[in-house]
Write a protein that binds this DNA or RNA. Sequence first.
DNA 1: TGCGCCTACTTGTCTATACAGGTATGAGTC
DNA 2: GACTCATACCTGTATAGACAAGTAGGCGCA
Lengths: 238, 238
Amino acid sequence: MSLTPPAARYLQVKHYVLEQVAAGTLRAGERVPSENELVRSLRVSRMTANRALKELAADGVLVRVAGVGTFVAEQRVHAHPLEVRNIADEIRSRGHEYRVRVQELKTVEASRELAERFELKPGAALDYSLLTHFEGGVPLQVEERYVNPQVAPGYLANDFEKVTPHEFLVSVAPLQRAEHTVRALLPERRIRRLLKLEADEACLLIRRRTFSRGRVASIADLYHPGSRYELAANIQPR
Amino acid sequence: MSLTPPAARYLQVKHYVLEQVAAGTLRAGERVPSENELVRSLRVSRMTANRALKELAADGVLVRVAGVGTFVAEQRVHAHPLEVRNIADEIRSRGHEYRVRVQELKTVEASRELAERFELKPGAALDYSLLTHFEGGVPLQVEERYVNPQVAPGYLANDFEKVTPHEFLVSVAPLQRAEHTVRALLPERRIRRLLKLEADEACLLIRRRTFSRGRVASIADLYHPGSRYELAANIQPR
DNA sequence: TGCGCCTACTTGTCTATACAGGTATGAGTC
DNA sequence: GACTCATACCTGTATAGACAAGTAGGCGCA
């Protein structure tokens, strides 16, 4: 069983190749379909196929040799190709703290997007957590996670005050197979919708955005673009 | 002073942006020229500008927000964006060993490509080292390095039997500013040209390639595509 | 056997063009 | 003050077409 292919076509191509690598149809050292073959079989342009293979090569999954072809990389033990950005790790030493807001089982009935992304039938349940991150006492980020309990069992049993969700997921699931959806900070309306928690914090978050009117030279103190939050951790089994 | 801009145009764009970030013209959080501005000022297509900015964002140098713009990322202390692949580290625990063949000062007169790449006048000298890597007793790779002595002083003074060239370079030079040229294994003719060292090893290396005639299904035992060697370590000062 | 040449194929790069979706801002309305 | 709307701009994605450079394999020649 595999998850629903993503919407973007280059992601579909990556998905197509990764699926065969994960299933064992393509083993280490074996030849991957060339760009032109992918063009014919998947009906995409060569630039799209090129992007997909190039990114997989950058992740260390494939190896490309100009003039020869593309091949499944040998197993590399140490280096993990997927770059993981963990805001908690990054700012921990700079006055970072976070608070756990929600930690519960959620049915996917409400959101059709979730059901599709995780390929779940209506009525199925997902582990859900919502954290707010602070830096120097100022609420900066909202981290919302949906985790398939089948691929990361025991997610909700954690004490997220001690172990961050990211740390747990890293320890329990093979990161090479993980698909993380990373987005920048939320626009104002979604923050309002999300943060019905404590009015003052919502105010602060929103005020930091509303301040932007008038001065656009630097977006640094509004967005803190270096840091991000992860919307959904969608981890493939196997 | 800066090094010669690379040949590929998307690398020129990256170079253009990185130079301003390194020089301090663009500080953390500040706005980077948009894709369309780069199109007009550097006379490249938007796809090229897009690729340059996208890769810099993947390296953690920039942060892009759709609909807003591109910004210089905040300083991130821990994570180093440049992914460094070190074959010695990767295979060390799997029967890996290497032998130092050449370790000397070389003038760049012979190669015009080298002089241009390092922006040196004819007659200038470069530190040079040539190692052969083995895995399970079989010679697998040739690692050839040219290092600018001004940016990595003391390179030749190392005992490369104890410290690999890569490890020394990592310790002495800021990797964020490094430009590594990574290539796959050499074609047959260049191996012949390079390896006038010991006939049997050259034979083995070449034989592993000549074996390919007839069976093309898997290139694994010929190339070992997962491992690479670095042709030139060209490290920018500052 | 070794060498150079040619052809077919593969990846790398670049361009022009197009559409989609997100965002900031100002004008207008309640 | 809060909201809606239109506009201008930005990034994300996708395509078709083109040229360059590298490689494998076949062929012929010395």
